[in-house]
Amino acid sequence: HHAKTNDVFNSYVREGYLDGHRIDFVSGRVAFDLEWNSKDQTYDRDLYAFSAFHEAGAIDVGVILTRGSSLDNKFFKSLGKVLDKDGEKEGTAEVYKKFGASTTWMGKLLYRLDAGRNGGCPVLAFGITPKCVIDP
Rank of each mutant, 00 (worst) to 15 (best):
Y12K: 13
Y12S: 12
R14F: 14
R14H: 12
R14D: 12
E15S: 06
G16S: 04
G16W: 03
Y17V: 08
Y17G: 00
Y17Q: 09
L18H: 08
D19R: 13
D19M: 04
G20Y: 06
G20E: 10
G20S: 12
H21A: 11
I23G: 01
I23R: 04
D24L: 00
D24E: 10
D24P: 00
D24W: 03
F25M: 08
F25G: 00
F25N: 01
V26G: 05
V26P: 04
S27R: 12
G28S: 10
G28Q: 10
R29D: 15
R29W: 01
R29A: 13
V30L: 12
V30Y: 07
A31F: 05
A31P: 05
A31G: 08
F32Q: 00
F32M: 12
F32E: 01
F32V: 15
D33S: 12
D33L: 03
D33W: 00
L34Y: 09
E35I: 04
W36G: 01
N37W: 08
N37I: 08
K39A: 13
K39E: 11
K39S: 11
D40N: 14
D40R: 13
Q41W: 10
Q41M: 04
T42H: 14
T42K: 14
T42D: 01
T42F: 04
Y43M: 02
Y43S: 00
D44F: 01
R45M: 07
R45W: 07
D46W: 03
L47N: 02
L47Y: 02
L47K: 05
